[in-house]
Design a protein around this nucleic acid. Sequence first.
DNA 1: TTTAATGCAAATACTTTGCAGGAAA
DNA 2: TTTCCTGCAAAGTATTTGCATTAAA
Lengths: 122, 122
Amino acid sequence: MGKSSEIVKEHLSYSDGFISAQSLHHVITKSKTKIGLTTVYRALQKMVDSGEVDTFRNPEGEAEYRLCTPNHHHHLVCTNCGFTVEIDGGAIESWASSAAVKNGFSSISHIADIYGLCRQCA
Amino acid sequence: MGKSSEIVKEHLSYSDGFISAQSLHHVITKSKTKIGLTTVYRALQKMVDSGEVDTFRNPEGEAEYRLCTPNHHHHLVCTNCGFTVEIDGGAIESWASSAAVKNGFSSISHIADIYGLCRQCA
DNA sequence: TTTAATGCAAATACTTTGCAGGAAA
DNA sequence: TTTCCTGCAAAGTATTTGCATTAAA
């Protein structure tokens, strides 16, 4: 694993919450570091495989990534303007694990996001 | 709105749970009806806009659709073999609406799916 | 030298859009 | 006629892969 993976992970840690591979690539190249989009994708995929990074697809079809951290949270997203609020998972976490255990599933992860219109856009 | 939208909706109702636009198009053309992929996409998008249909992106990046029904449920998906269990949303529904209200959001929908390994694949 | 990392360009997959022909009002 | 529906082909976007170059071990 070369230096690039380190750079990707570092920038991932700067970003709060999820970020897409494309955005991450933008951020990195804008910062000063030269890096290929392919390399960003490959670094992210490796970290997903190793369990260091969580991923899910947003409604636009882009994959979003974040470092796995203990302070796991979810998103409330305005479908009109994109305004996003981070919210606590609350009961979700236990719902997910109990549903999984009940059905014999293991190594679980979950996605849970809420979409709606924010006050401005309603 | 022509006949095609009716056909799309009908086949959507046959399918239990979510189905992708591509799969739906396959099913429809295989059944006997000639229909263009474009038309399927357009019919689905119209129904999403009107609130008749729910949609989300699966981890592969495909959009999946289902008719909105009162017996709303969620999915527990095996990431290895694709085996899927339908589970009740339980506390999710109230979590979603309370989080939304607390932040001034309206017209909300949510996605909540759990991924893991089923007994066979663990 | 042998192995792994890198990135450009091409390929792939899903979805959307432009446009012309046809059906319905 | 005017409007809407259809669907082919082209375009657009995100992601993956082939391959040659380069860096590291």
